[in-house]
Design a binder for these strands. Sequence first.
DNA 1: TCATAACCGTACCATAGAGTACGCTTTTTA
DNA 2: TAAAAAGCGTACTCTATGGTACGGTTATGA
Lengths: 222, 222
Amino acid sequence: MNMERNPASGCVTSRREIRRQDRRDAILTVAARSFLEQGYAGTTMSGIAATLGGSKGTLWNYFGSKEELFAAVIDHVTIEYRAGLSEILAEPCDDLRLTLKRFCTGIMDKVTTPDAISLHRLVVAEAGRFPEMGRIFYDRAPLQTYVLLAEFLEGVMARGLIRAEEPMQAARLLVTLCVSGYQQKMLMGLIETATTPMIAAEVERATDLFMRAYALEDGTPS
Amino acid sequence: MNMERNPASGCVTSRREIRRQDRRDAILTVAARSFLEQGYAGTTMSGIAATLGGSKGTLWNYFGSKEELFAAVIDHVTIEYRAGLSEILAEPCDDLRLTLKRFCTGIMDKVTTPDAISLHRLVVAEAGRFPEMGRIFYDRAPLQTYVLLAEFLEGVMARGLIRAEEPMQAARLLVTLCVSGYQQKMLMGLIETATTPMIAAEVERATDLFMRAYALEDGTPS
DNA sequence: TCATAACCGTACCATAGAGTACGCTTTTTA
DNA sequence: TAAAAAGCGTACTCTATGGTACGGTTATGA
């Protein structure tokens, strides 16, 4: 009676399965918070069960071990992370330099978020024991960024606005120039946050350097 | 009788103190290996004592807690790390581009070492709980590198060979361009090692980009 | 030679945390 | 309305590990 056939996906979605999905999401949310804030070793299954309000048995009903839960969390959280990326490439405007600055600022805003830093730390910290986590994160976050920017740069190169050379590498290098400085300092705990003017200045430096390096060889102004 | 007065430092160096120093070093060496390879949580005091051969009591005689030992290890290991840096800035030759490439290659060789990667991971992983570790590492490793290169670049700028602008920032950006790509991949466990040709290609890309960006504005060839 | 500091081995304590067992209650389905 | 699935709470097991205690031994220094 309460069984619905979802016409779009064609799969059965009983009330039970919906609830189960909700519950799973709730667990993932709570677990994500804990892993991001306390790290892997600092997170306890008992603690998660406690803040969930349920019992430990239920937790193990969904995830067979701490490692399994951790994997699911990384998966879940990086998918969210990537979802935020698509919005970043603002509508390109006529001014190339300005468009790049907007793009870079968007990335910086995202990457210097406390959550982003925590996630980055977590992945790096556990990449030794769980190499798949590194792969998952890299493919969904940095790589996606490079690809997005590379596609844009390829168009710009084709229109002869900048030196036409390895768009993917160019994208990676530009992002690196923007992001590395403060990211490094935040990962190492030297600073807590990157303020808007700090970000603006760094983006300025990076895009200027990039534009000079990718200017056309003849005297044509870009 | 076996007490010597060291004329240089003016401090007493009894046989006992020498032994103590040796012992301390031995502990640090063993502990460093364990922390680098197993991480903080994966390292056990009992394990260290066991591979040392001695007893646990002795270990606590030297370091009052695991955290204290960890701090000492980071300190010790980053000092060694920095010591290796001074050798890197090869004697500058006439060709600026070549000198930069040598410098960058030296840095890359050092930074992609398994130990360097492990240390980097360790610092990033624990920077949340032990912020001082981040500071110690940053000041001794990346910052030193930037300073070293910045001094060199300042000279080059003064001689009018490249655009004269913020040598410290220039140094940081060049190092970042070289290092970030493979460092990121190694930290995340995507690749195990960076081969010589890989490094050479990356250094080529980075220095080319840098030289184009810092070329003088008039048509003078650098 | 004698006092002492360091060291060894071993046994021990206390705590924490992953994972299990089980009996009772609630929700869902048919 | 009855069977079944999921959940709850609580108590429990088992193992790992940081840290301590202690009695006997060796190296060191005066």
